[in-house]
């Protein structure tokens, strides 16, 4: 029990505040990009673009703000497993819904 508590205890911030401000600006920029792209007519690609930008933002948040970058590699692996699982779930669902014909 104690063992677990000790190793997961909060570590001091691993990077200077400058990095966080940079990341924040980057997130704001990407938000602006989302808004801008939504005005351009790209058909189905609009959704794809929005999802791609949102995923990038989520990745940056997890990487810096949630400290994945500074943590043990096992946590990186675990997050990767989640992402792959989600990818499989979406992928296999889409091989149905994108090519479903009339019944």
């Amino acid at each position: 029990m104690k063992d677990v508590m000790e190793t997961t205890a909060e570590k001091p911030h691993a990077s200077p505040y400058g990095t966080y401000i940079l990341v924040w600006l980057c997130l704001m920029g990407l938000t602006g990009l989302t808004v801008a792209v939504s005005g351009v007519h790209l058909g189905n690609w609009n959704a794809a673009g929005a999802v791609a930008i949102a995923s990038t933002k989520a990745a940056v948040v997890i990487w810096y703000f949630m400290h994945l970058r500074y943590d043990k590699s096992i946590f990186r692996w675990m997050v990767l497993v989640m992402i792959i699982t989600l990818g499989i779930i979406l992928g296999l669902t889409f091989i149905d819904s994108t090519v479903r014909g009339p019944f």
């Binding site: 699982t85 499989i88 779930i89 296999l92 091989i95 149905d96 819904s97 994108t98 090519v99 479903r100 014909g101 019944f103």
Partner: peptide, 22 residues
């Protein structure tokens, strides 16, 4: 086990591609 759920749905009207893959 994550890749096979569609075999419960062969008669559901799912696409033929998905049926073959699953």
């Amino acid at each position: 086990g994550y890749l096979v759920w569609g075999h419960h749905m062969f008669t559901s009207g799912m696409s033929n591609t998905a049926r073959a893959v699953f």
